[in-house]
Amino acid sequence: MKPPSFDYFDPTTLDEAVALLAQHGSDAKVLAGGQSLVPMLNLRLARPAVLVDLNWVAGLDYVRAENGHVAVGALARQRAVERAAEVRQRQPLLGEAIRLIGHPAVRNRGTVVGSLAHADPAAELPAVAVALGAELVVAGPSGRRVVAADDFFVSYLTVDLAPDELLVEARFPALPARTGWAIAEVARRFGDFAVAGVVATLTLDAQGSATDARIGLFGVADRPLRATAAERALLGQPPDDARIAAATEAVRAALVDAPTDVHASGAYRRHVAGVLVGRALSEARQRAQAAG
């Protein structure tokens, strides 16, 4: 478990980092928290010729509340984001999702943006980004572009990022008024990648009808999924138990191809995703009603 040899660069500015990526292209890998990349290097599953270490670039470790969203910089550690007042007040779902990642030692190093760029389909944060409609800011040789989370995640460990581009910021919309939220997952042990997981938000109007419903699924496909049919089943009505049951069935209907691995079969994932959707929606409903 020793990595093959590689060249190491430690740029101190973002422009330098992007220039290095432009120079080395797909031979290069970006190192931030290293919680996925370093084990993959040691197992020789990743064999980049070049590592571009972002950790010396100044000004990327921020968490900011601005323009109706929470902006998280590329070097903000998960632990810092989890604890940030901006997150607790404006987007508590994000903080709660981070709490389910690994253990504090992992979160002290791991970054929110790194988890998004790595795009493990069983990770919490990509599903949070998709469900909330996060915007992802990408820097490249020709400047910056903003990608919707929905378009960013392509498939297993694959995202809409060119070899010379860098994900520099994630913008999570703040929770709207009268909105409840929840995250529920089954992991084999606390902190493991989920066997199946659900994030949900539910926004109610003054009469208690759902005006917005967002459901993100993780661990059940090759990328985080938005459960759109289930969301539609909830809109325009009070989210009573029958509506939630309908959403549950819609989720199960959409997951006929859920993957099988050593931890669970597709059949289990499909079953339990339904259970978790029901639980997450009930909890979100409770929070939404309390917030109203």
């Binding site: 084990p39 197992l43 253990h103 084999r188 042990r189 606390f190 902190g191 493991d192 990648f193 050593v262």
Partner: peptide, 26 residues
């Protein structure tokens, strides 16, 4: 938790502590 799983060809599918699950303090 702990299970050393092989496929039919004799490949160990739980070859790291990501998949071979030791119980922890939690």
């Amino acid at each position: 938790y702990e299970h050393l799983v092989y496929d039919d060809s004799g490949q160990l599918l739980t070859g790291t502590f990501m998949d071979y699950l030791l119980p922890t303090t939690t």
